[in-house]
């Protein structure tokens, strides 16, 4: 498994897409640092950009990469290797390559242009987002045979997590503002990994009001240490569940 992962990771790292993606991330980060003089504001801007960019890029790239690799996965399946190892080789190679590019681009920008105080939390959130959306993409690509439908589903799901979900929560809270529904707001945010990463970041940087409603509510109700523990557990579940569904689909898939 390690051997295959190594070769597949190299293959992805050498693609033009990865180069463009890395440069783009670096330029965005540097741009946000140089536009204003306030380091904290730039960091918030970078984090917000990553919350949008990573899910969308990871999902579209992973899903289309899996469809492109169908022939090669088929060839690997005819070799004396268990299916689960082939699954994890392709999953890990994709994740390793994406993480390496993302973390080095963002890391470099943060080291060069900031005091590095938020480096770790941004890295952790980027890693969670990459793992979660990569797992979801694997589930989509191995469940839907048609490439166009698969990519379409991943785009729709990305938009849902990024915009529609928050919209629904905001509408619910506004229309029911007479009732004490904040607690339900917290529960609802557990169903959106992007919200969870945002909340995690809010705990690190004291700007809840700037970062969206669910974040503000979360901080109000749960102290940061208990809150972050719960969030880490839920984020791990967000990786585990889609990944196990994806493995199940892959093990039974007709190639």
């Amino acid at each position: 498994m390690i051997k295959i992962t190594k070769y597949l990771t190299l293959n992805i790292l050498k693609s033009k897409f990865m180069l463009v993606y890395g440069v783009l991330l670096f330029v965005i980060c540097v741009g946000l640092f140089t536009l204003g003089n306030d380091q904290d504001k730039a960091i918030i801007g970078i984090h917000n950009t990553l919350l949008i960019l990573i899910p969308i890029v990871v999902m579209i790239y992973t899903v289309s990469h899996i469809y492109q690799s169908t022939d090669f996965i088929r060839l690997l399946l005819t070799q004396p290797i268990q299916r689960k190892y082939i699954f994890f080789s392709q999953f890990l190679s994709n994740v390793f390559a994406l993480l390496l590019v993302q973390l080095s681009a963002i890391g470099l920008a943060l080291v060069l242009f900031s005091d590095g105080s938020f480096l770790f939390s941004i890295m952790v959130n980027s890693t969670f987002l990459t793992l979660i959306f990569s797992a979801i993409s694997n589930w989509i690509a191995f469940s839907i045979d048609e490439k166009v439908k698969g990519i379409g589903t991943s785009i729709l799901l990305g938009i849902y997590f990024l915009a529609i979900y928050d919209g629904i929560i905001l509408m619910l809270i506004q229309t029911m503002s007479e009732y004490p529904i904040e607690k339900y707001g917290i529960t609802l945010s557990l169903f959106n990994p992007i919200d969870l990463c945002r909340i995690l970041f809010i705990f690190k940087i004291d700007i809840s009001a700037l970062m969206g409603l669910t974040g503000a509510i979360m901080e109000k109700f749960i102290g940061s240490s208990l809150g972050s523990t719960i969030i880490y557990i839920v984020l791990l579940l967000w990786i585990g569940f889609p990944l196990s569904f994806a493995v199940k689909k892959f093990l039974k898939k007709d190639y």
Binding site: S15, T70, D71, F72, L75, T78
Partner: peptide
């Protein structure tokens, strides 16, 4: 189990390989 595939050589019809992998690496 998958061990029986040690005994098989398979030539697929027009297989597509990873684009950036060198032939030697394959």
């Amino acid at each position: 189990g998958p061990e029986y595939r040690n005994k098989i050589g398979y030539m697929a019809q027009m297989g597509r390989y990873p684009e950036n992998m060198k032939l030697a690496q394959l």
